[in-house]
């Protein structure tokens, strides 16, 4: 038996690590990967709740999150390619064309 809160804590830790990656990483692709990590953290929470509630809904939700993540990845990577073509860099700190 594992307490539900263990799962939730793991999920929160993963989510927070994802947030940390989003804030601190400089490489655009890694920033994007960090977002995927956040989504994974959320998925774990869904599955854990689903199990605790004896409901299938949480599982289905995870399924849709994955679907969305796939579409997001396709578009996101396309955007990254377009940026790379224009700028030849993937450094977040170089994205300074739009500033005050």
């Amino acid at each position: 038996m594992v307490p539900l809160s263990y799962y939730l804590a793991l999920s929160a830790i993963l989510f927070c690590l994802g947030v940390a990656g989003f804030i601190f990483k400089q490489d655009i692709i890694t920033v994007f990967i960090s977002i995927e990590l956040m989504l994974n953290g959320v998925n774990l929470a869904f599955v854990a709740f689903s199990h605790a509630l004896r409901q299938i809904d949480g599982n289905i939700f995870v399924f849709f999150v994955m679907v969305v993540a796939a579409a997001e990845a396709a578009v996101g990577l396309a955007i990254i390619i377009a940026v790379m073509r224009n700028r030849n860099t993937l450094d977040v700190d170089q994205m300074t064309k739009l500033r005050d």
């Binding site: 594992v2 307490p3 539900l4 809160s5 799962y7 939730l8």
Partner: peptide, 13 residues
């Protein structure tokens, strides 16, 4: 973590 622990601490899976 505190919140979820407080809310669901007792539930065992």
């Amino acid at each position: 973590i505190g919140q979820v622990y407080g809310a669901f601490g007792a539930t065992q899976l």
